[in-house]
Design a protein around this nucleic acid. Structure first.
Lengths: 224, 224
DNA sequence: ACTTATAAAGGGTTTTTTCCTGTTTTGTTT
DNA sequence: AAACAAAACAGGAAAAAACCCTTTATAAGT
């Protein structure tokens, strides 16, 4: 332990109860940590982070309303390249983990860990600059050995333009293509083109495949 | 405050970090609460709860691997009818809320509440037997005024038999009906019948509607 | 002014889905 | 064994989806 001042932390998570709980946990174990601010999502983070009082480590959730963890991390590494990011997520999909690691986060934890492991992770990041468990390393290696899926799926979000996203949402409903064409003020033949383009881009073969792809990648609301 | 002994609580949530955080929060505010056990899911709960040391209130998550919140609550109200259940969930879908209320839970909270509201909820349940916010009441009233969706969707799970569920899973892939028929060792015409039956039962009009219904109601895996 | 790229639109065809109408087979009850 | 219900199967037809290849308009880049 070579630090003299307390480690400055920031929390980004949309669940207030989780944030408060985390604060409780962190305060309980020694007084090494100081939470300088909390944020509910990426946008909130952008407003609250300050140049002259940067946190050492940001504990970041991934799935949040508003700006999600991916965009928040992208923005952070551009704007505050010195800040260490530790992701704490409920999701353990390889895709998401690898995506985050590629963006440059210093660690990835699940929410069902022991409080002690959180402490280890924080200390490891301060001292060594990273904290990767064997499980994460395993995922990473697997993704290197099987790059296909990831390269296909790679961005998915940035692969589709505004209009295609709009079409995709309609394609996930019970509307016929003719109805979609009418709603989008386009010819059915143009809709034909959109469908074929998305089949190609997303590597699917049917409208059901399209819809399932969309839900798998969180491209459409699954509300009601 | 008329209680003399501390209120006995139990936590059921699959995220250890959240449980520990919750414990921290609860311990911080006075010593009114005593956590007698934690569980990761419904099955874990069944093993850890004891007749001679029942909790006053069980804080219950909904979406958990293993036995989920619904089945856990069903089992609880049958086996331990005196135990009060307070749901703490990230999900605010009317369907889920109403379903839980029908099962007899005494309160429903979101995870992004203030720690203070949790305390209010716990005290309210001890003193008045329930804690329903205006938002929950609103959802409930809306569900009474618009019962259609809920009655259609009501059980969904118990509405479909084994074979229909199997068909539904295939229908959510890119297989054609002919291919599904072959895979299920049935005539394409029988598959026709399955499709029509599900269209009727689930009140959808197309295969995409079927697939979207399935994902919305968690009837199919959204893995990879 | 001339390529280049791209979104939009069209014509025509095949396959799949969807919707009717039924009949046969199978299992269960009485 | 007769009666009944449910599951399986069929013929035929209309609609929608999917695929082919071609053309126009429009803007951007050189």
């Amino acid at each position: 332990m070579k630090h003299t001042a307390p480690i400055k932390l920031a929390l980004v998570d949309d669940h207030k109860l989780f944030r408060k709980g985390l604060i409780g946990i962190l305060e309980m174990m020694d007084k090494e940590y100081e939470i300088i601010f909390e944020a509910e999502n990426g946008i909130d983070l952008q407003q609250k982070i300050q140049k002259d009082n940067q946190p050492d480590i940001i504990l970041m959730d991934v799935n949040m309303p508003g700006m999600d963890g991916f965009d928040a991390v992208k923005w952070l590494v551009e704007t505050y390249p010195l800040v260490n990011i530790l992701v704490i997520s409920m999701v353990e999909k390889e895709e998401q983990i690898v995506k985050m690691l590629k963006l440059g986060v210093k660690g990835y934890l699940y929410k069902d860990i022991e409080p002690n492991e959180l402490k280890n992770a924080l200390n490891s990041i301060v001292n060594k600059g990273y904290y990767y468990t064997d499980f994460i390393t395993g995922k990473l290696i697997h993704s290197i050995q099987h790059p296909s899926e990831l390269n296909e799926t790679q961005d998915a979000f940035h692969l589709l333009n505004e209009r295609e996203m709009e079409f995709l949402k309609f394609a996930c409903t019970e509307m016929t293509y003719n109805e979609i064409a009418h709603k989008m003020f386009l010819s059915p033949k143009t809709i034909d083109g959109y469908r074929n383009a998305l089949f190609e881009k997303l590597n699917v073969k049917s409208r059901v495949g399209l819809a399932m792809y969309a839900v798998k990648n969180g491209l459409v609301e699954i509300s009601n």
